[in-house]
Amino acid sequence: MVRFIAYVDPSTGSFALQAAVGAVMGVSFMMRNRVRIIINKFKKPRSAKPDDTE
């Protein structure tokens, strides 16, 4: 059950908007995170420079 918080007037319209677009934004957010994780996995690690004194 969702609580109704009295301190700040949250506005019914604001709640309704969150319910309407929240799912789309949530899915988009998760997909972007997944893509970022995959890209980071395949990024070449930086290799150390060879020691010139060897």
Binding site: Q18, A19, M25
Partner: peptide, 26 residues
């Protein structure tokens, strides 16, 4: 949405998951 719901006497009812909220903030 504010205009459409102004004057509503009922308490707001909506359920937003944690993932949806994270997406909203993002």
């Amino acid at each position: 949405f504010q205009r459409q719901h102004e004057g509503t006497a009922e308490k707001p009812q909506a359920a937003v998951s944690a993932t949806s909220l994270a997406g909203l903030i993002d």
